[in-house]
Measured scan of single mutants.
Amino acid sequence: DRIFMTRTEALEFLLKAHQTAVDKIGHPSHKQTPADHAAIEALDRLLLDVRARRVDQFQINASAAQIIVTD
């Protein structure tokens, strides 16, 4: 599946995904793992790359739809 978004929409989408990941590892019942921190770092890099126009398409994980940034 493909989803087309403007750059602004894609950045909002990534910010929400980032916040969800941060909230998940901050929850008291969740045991933090290196994979959790790696996922947040990957989202940080992706946010910067989309914002800087170095990336025009991405996929958060293998089961997610491919996001295509349109400007």
Rank of each mutant, 00 (worst) to 15 (best):
T20K: 13
D1P: 13
A65M: 13
I60G: 01
V50H: 01
F58V: 01
V69G: 01
E9V: 04
A38V: 11
H27P: 06
A10Y: 01
V69M: 07
L48P: 01
T20R: 11
H30G: 06
K16Y: 09
R7T: 07
A62T: 12
T33H: 04
A42H: 11
E41S: 10
M5Q: 01
I25F: 10
L14G: 00
L48K: 15
I68M: 08
F13V: 04
P34E: 10
F58K: 00
I68R: 03
A65L: 12
L43R: 00
D44T: 14
D36G: 03
A42T: 13
E41V: 12
Q66V: 15
T70H: 08
V22R: 04
D1F: 02
L48Y: 12
L43T: 01
T6K: 06
K31H: 15
F4R: 06
V22H: 06
L11P: 00
L15P: 00
L47A: 05
K24N: 06
T33V: 06
D23Y: 03
A42Q: 13
A64K: 09
E41P: 02
V50D: 00
E12R: 11
D36C: 03
R53N: 14
A42F: 15
N61K: 02
T70D: 08
L48T: 14
V22A: 08
F4L: 07
Q59F: 11
Q59G: 03
K31T: 12
D49S: 06
M5Y: 02
V69T: 02
R45S: 07
D56W: 13
F58Y: 02
A38G: 05
A35T: 05
P28F: 04
D49C: 06
T6R: 04
R53D: 11
A42Y: 15
A38F: 09
A62F: 07
R7W: 12
K31N: 15
A39P: 03
L47N: 01
A64I: 09
G26K: 15
A52Q: 12
A38H: 08
R45N: 11
I40N: 01
G26Y: 15
D49M: 08
T8N: 13
L14F: 01
D49I: 02
L47V: 12
D44N: 14
A38P: 03
D1R: 04
H30I: 06
V69N: 01
H37I: 15
H27C: 05
A21Q: 07
I3A: 04
A42P: 01
I3V: 11
L43N: 00
A38Y: 11
I25A: 07
P28R: 03
P28S: 08
R54Y: 06
H18V: 11
T6G: 05
R7N: 05
S29F: 06
I67E: 00
I3E: 03
V55N: 02
V69D: 03
A65V: 14
D44I: 14
F4C: 07
H18S: 04
K24M: 12
A52Y: 14
D49N: 06
M5F: 05
H27T: 08
T70C: 07
T20W: 09
T70V: 15
S63P: 07
A39W: 14
T33E: 15
D56E: 09
K24D: 05
Q59P: 02
R45Y: 03
L15Q: 12
V22E: 04
D1N: 08
D71E: 03
K31S: 15
A35R: 06
I60C: 06
I68N: 04
A38M: 13
I25W: 03
Q66T: 05
I40P: 02
L15I: 13
E9M: 07
T33D: 12
L14D: 00
L43W: 02
A42V: 13
S29N: 10
A35V: 06
N61L: 08
M5S: 00
Q66I: 15
F13S: 02
A21W: 09
Q66R: 11
R2N: 12
A65W: 10
A35Y: 11
L15S: 11
N61D: 10
T6M: 03
T70W: 12
E41A: 12
D36E: 07
A10E: 00
A52M: 13
G26A: 04
D56Y: 14
E12M: 10
T33P: 07
I40G: 02
K24W: 05
A21H: 11
L47H: 03
T33W: 08
R53E: 14
A10T: 02
Q57E: 11
F13W: 11
R7I: 07
F13M: 12
N61M: 09
A21E: 05
N61R: 05
R54T: 09
R54P: 01
H27A: 13
L43Q: 04
A35D: 12
D56R: 12
R7D: 01
A17D: 00
F13D: 01
K31G: 15
F58W: 01
F13Q: 03
H30R: 02
K31Y: 15
N61T: 12
L47R: 05
I40R: 03
I40L: 12
Q32H: 15
H37D: 13
A17N: 04
L47F: 11
D49P: 00
T70Q: 09
I25P: 02
R2H: 11
Q32S: 12
R54D: 07
E12W: 06
H18M: 13
M5H: 01
R7L: 13
Q19F: 06
V22W: 10
A39E: 14
E41D: 10
H18P: 00
I68S: 06
I67N: 01
P28C: 05
A39R: 11
L15Y: 10
R7F: 09
Q59Y: 11
A42E: 13
S29H: 07
V22I: 05
N61E: 13
E41N: 11
D71H: 08
Q66Y: 09
I60P: 01
G26W: 15
K31R: 02
T6V: 03
K16V: 10
V55Q: 06
H27I: 06
I25S: 06
H37S: 10
R51G: 12
A52P: 01
A64C: 05
P28I: 07
F13R: 02
R51A: 12
T8P: 13
V50T: 01
I3G: 02
T70G: 06
R2Y: 11
R54E: 06
E9S: 05
K16I: 11
I60M: 10
Q66D: 05
S63I: 12
D71A: 09
I68D: 02
R2S: 09
A65Q: 11
I67T: 02
I40T: 02
F4H: 06
A62I: 10
L46Y: 02
A65Y: 13
A17R: 04
E9N: 04
K24T: 08
L14K: 00
V69S: 01
R51I: 14
Q57Y: 12
A35P: 04
D49H: 04
I40W: 02
D23S: 05
S63K: 11
I3Y: 07
I3R: 07
R2M: 10
I68L: 07
A21K: 03
H30D: 08
S29K: 03
D1V: 06
Q19S: 06
T20V: 13
E9D: 09
T8Y: 11
A35E: 14
D71Y: 07
P34N: 07
A42C: 10
F4W: 08
I67A: 01
L47T: 05
A38L: 12
D1T: 07
A62Q: 11
F58M: 01
V55A: 04
I67D: 01
A52E: 15
A65S: 10
Q32I: 15
R53K: 15
R45W: 03
V22T: 10
K24A: 04
L14V: 04
D56L: 10
T6Y: 03
I25E: 02
A38I: 11
V69K: 01
H30L: 04
